[in-house]
Amino acid sequence: MADRMIEVSDISRPGLELTGYFRYYPSNRIQLFGKTEISFSKGMSSEELSVVLRRMAMPDTPAFLVSRGYQPPQQMITEAQKAHVPVLGSPLPTSRLSSVVTEYLDEELAERRSMHGVLVDIYGLGVLITGDSGVGKSETALDLIKRGHRLIADDRVDVYQRDEKTIVGEAPAILRHLLEIRGIGIIDVMNLFGAGAVRDSAEISLIVHLENWSPDVNYDRIGAHEQFQQIFDVALPKITIPVKVGRNLAIIIESAAMNFRAQSMGYDATKVFERNLNSLIKEHTAEDEGTKA
């Protein structure tokens, strides 16, 4: 039974199959038996139920799953044992069980990708810090941890798409809770700073890209130009921060996260500045017209 593969997250409730309709039977899904299916099966003869369950126990059927703590029919156990299909049970209501299993399978079966960067939880926001090797990502993450924020992943971040709007990042098992600092080596963040300094995973809300300061680049000074980076099917907000001696990157990134949260709640400092500027222009225009008059 252990070699049964689950390749799709969809769950099937085999009501039609119990009536003998198998034209479109999704045999590669977990077959969920709830109150309706169990009640219907009790009205079938032993031979009819055995025939139906025998047809349902296909080579690619991952499992039979029974909700609400119901006792599986003996015919189900018999035919499942013959076909080596696991029979599982749960006390959860059928709809709730279907939702939990589907959500779990969506995460486990999602396509994963590794990205170079550092993922930090800042005030509950997952901030992915990217940039060229040696630009100071890990050192900045260490400063953020000392300021009370939490490390999720350093150097390599495994990301996957949870739903149409959400990208989740986590650390590979071999790097979990570890941080590499040049000149020191590998440090164990949980042992040094406590369990409150780490998280296993987080939704990525913002990407902060660090790049070496160049006098030839005209950096955005008022935040009027929005940037995004595509990860799978989700476009995530992105800001670029130039790095040079004397800039406290931890405080800058912390402020960027706070500003992003404020924008998400409807407060945009850039728009406030534009309104103030427009008001100032109108005042000066009115004064100039009054002077000419």
Rank of each mutant, 00 (worst) to 15 (best):
A250G: 14
I251M: 09
A250Q: 06
V243A: 15
P242L: 02
R261C: 12
T240S: 07
I241Y: 09
K244W: 13
R261N: 07
T240A: 00
K244D: 09
K244R: 15
I253Q: 07
E254A: 03
N259C: 06
Q263L: 02
G266W: 02
E254S: 05
A256W: 08
V243E: 14
M265R: 15
G246P: 00
K271I: 06
V245K: 13
I241P: 09
Y267W: 05
S264V: 10
G246K: 01
I251E: 04
G266R: 01
D268Q: 01
L249V: 10
P237Q: 01
Q263S: 09
F260L: 13
K244E: 13
S255I: 15
L249E: 05
A250I: 07
T270D: 06
Y267E: 11
T240R: 01
T240D: 08
K244T: 13
K244S: 12
A256P: 03
I252T: 15
V243L: 13
V245T: 15
I252D: 13
M265H: 15
P237V: 04
D268N: 10
V245H: 14
K244V: 07
I241M: 06
Q263K: 08
L249Y: 07
K244C: 11
P237R: 01
A262Y: 10
K238L: 02
R247P: 05
T270C: 02
Y267L: 07
F260R: 11
P237A: 05
L249T: 12
A250T: 09
G246N: 05
M265W: 11
M265Y: 15
D268T: 07
I251V: 13
I251Y: 10
I253D: 04
M265G: 10
E254V: 09
S255Y: 14
P237C: 00
D268S: 03
Q263V: 07
G246R: 00
M265K: 12
M258C: 12
R247E: 07
A257F: 00
I239D: 09
F260M: 07
P237W: 02
M258E: 14
K238Y: 02
N248R: 04
R247N: 10
V245C: 10
A262S: 14
M258K: 11
S255K: 11
S255Q: 15
R247K: 06
K238M: 05
P237I: 07
T240E: 10
N259R: 11
A250S: 14
K271A: 01
G266S: 00
M258H: 10
G266Q: 01
N259W: 06
A262P: 08
I253Y: 09
G266N: 08
P237H: 04
Q263Y: 06
R247G: 05
G266I: 05
A269V: 11
P242C: 08
T270A: 05
I239H: 11
V245Y: 11
D268F: 03
K271C: 02
A262Q: 09
K244H: 15
Q263M: 09
K271T: 09
N248Q: 10
T270W: 01
I251S: 12
Y267F: 13
R261Y: 11
A269C: 04
S264P: 08
N259K: 04
N248I: 06
V245S: 14
R261I: 11
G266L: 00
Y267Q: 08
N248T: 11
T270S: 05
G266C: 02
S255P: 14
I253M: 08
